[in-house]
Design a protein around this nucleic acid. Structure first.
Length: 403
RNA sequence: GGUGAGAUACUCAAGUGGCCAACGAGGGCAGACUGUAAAUCUGCUGAUUUUUAUCUUCGAAGGUUCGAAUCCUUCUCUCACCA
């Protein structure tokens, strides 16, 4: 009976993971939960500088939610100390130190977004500066004695940079150590992270042993979700992301704009459909009995509904159909008011449809600007009193009131 | 500490006194074709109502010159080799 429950739980936990280290330990934790109701901890670290959660983050969050379903208490760690170093995988090495007030603000922002997926009662939000600062120089020195340079250079990223002659700052060596130390302090049972975190995650095991915590965390890695371009990982700085806080229409539209190939990736990592159900869809598309766009619409609907409501998602779908398939104007758009007469390029810039007047001129010259569905070909066009729908390309609209 | 090389737009990368707002590639935006997919073709990609013009930009600040991304000086940073 219990064995069956464990198997079910394990199957759900395994889904979509790229690697699990020490699965046996997870089985034991599940067993004690089912038998005695004992809880255990799952840790995941997040960057305090990026409070805008996107779907890439939700891959991890959903896995955390799965663990909560099976008794876990989540340690939602905000790396306010480690952010000062910057994870070596990041491109910018030196980062601005965040003010405590900003960190607190970001943390609040995290909470409102994260609890759409996680159960707040089984979650503790922690900050690693709280225990790393008290370490002091002596504690830090002790930490560095637990590991050596040769092994540090085994890390793929360090290895490549070292061989290519690209500088590695000593402080970057501290990053994995500190992340591992977090697991020592928190006595985590399991840590989850992206595949790019493997080295850091394993450091947690190493340090828990070195500091004789009495257990070594199991490690579960999730694949990195590609962004809208399908190539680079989803990130805010690359602008290829779908934010959890995106409005239903945007969210739906962004999902529909991904490539067919990428769609399967999103299905695998984001959808709650079972793998066999997804396989049926794939076969259907391959033999032509299912239109790929229909399949993509289903995905867009599912994901939009998760972060909003089913009704929102359905109306986003209808809106999308209206605007793009039938080339009608959207029902809602930003509104801007002007004193007439006003130059068209000015309107485009001030309503932030274009970043500059020069860009507005270029767009007009290229014929991508439309007013009330009519193409504008006069660069000098002045708008007189009235209400207009101004549009650039297929996606950017604004309602303009000229008085 | 010593010696050498380098820093050009979102990224890579040409350009060594005027033809440079700066070749090319990638990326991005737009047009055609589509399913707001992919692929392909085309245009654009510093700013500005002087738009066959003007202004600002080539690590920073000065200087030489009619004229500088290009030459000189100082500074800042990066990399390599040596210690």
């Amino acid at each position: 009976m219990i064995d069956q429950k464990i198997n079910e739980a394990l199957e759900e936990i395994q889904r979509g993971t790229s690697e699990i280290i020490d699965e046996a330990r997870i089985v034991i934790l599940l067993k004690t939960f089912f038998e005695k109701g004992e809880t255990y901890t799952v840790k995941a670290g997040f960057d305090p500088t990026a409070p805008d959660l996107h779907l890439g983050h939700t891959v991890l969050l959903q896995k955390l939610a799965t663990f909560q379903k099976y008794g876990a208490h989540v340690q939602f760690l905000i790396g306010d100390f480690t952010a000062q170093i910057g994870d070596p995988t990041g491109k910018s090495e030196t980062r601005k130190k965040l003010l405590p007030a900003q960190i607190e603000e970001n943390a609040q922002s995290y909470k409102t977004q994260v609890f759409k997926i996680l159960n707040p009662e089984q979650t503790t939000v922690v900050f690693n500066a709280d225990w790393i600062n008290p370490l002091g120089a002596a504690g830090m020195l002790e930490l560095t004695t637990t590991f050596n340079v040769a092994r540090m250079l085994e890390r793929d990223d360090f290895d490549k940079r070292h061989k290519a002659g690209i500088s590695i700052s000593i402080s970057e060596f501290l990053y994995p150590l500190l992340q591992g130390y977090d697991s020592v302090h928190l006595k985590s049972d399991i840590e989850i992270g992206g595949t790019d975190q493997k080295f850091n995650l394993l450091m947690g095991r190493h340090l828990q042993r070195a500091y004789q915590v009495g257990k070594e965390q199991a490690v579960l890695m999730m694949p990195i979700l590609e962004g809208l371009d399908g190539v680079q990982k989803m990130s805010k700085s690359l602008g290829n992301y779908i934010a959890v806080a995106d409005m239903p229409n945007d969210m739906y539209g962004k999902i529909l704009s991904i490539s067919d190939q990428l769609m399967w990736r999103y299905y695998e990592l984001l959808s709650t459909l079972s793998l066999s159900e997804i396989e049926v869809l794939k076969v259907g598309v391959a033999d032509g009995s299912l239109h790929p766009k229909k399949v993509k619409e289903a995905l867009a609907l599912e994901i939009t509904a998760r972060f909003h409501t089913t009704a929102d998602a359905i109306s986003a779908g209808e809106e999308f159909q209206r605007v793009h398939a039938q080339s009608e104007i959207p029902t809602e758009m930003d509104e801007y008011s002007f004193e007439g007469p006003v130059w068209i390029a000015k309107v485009l810039t001030e309503s932030s449809l274009t970043p500059s007047t020069s860009q507005a001129r270029r767009d007009i010259k290229q014929g991508s600007v439309k007013i009330n569905q009519e193409k504008v070909d006069d660069e000098q066009l002045q708008l007189n009193a009235g209400v207009y729908v101004v549009q650039i390309g297929k996606r950017k609209f604004a309602r303009i009131k000229v008085s």
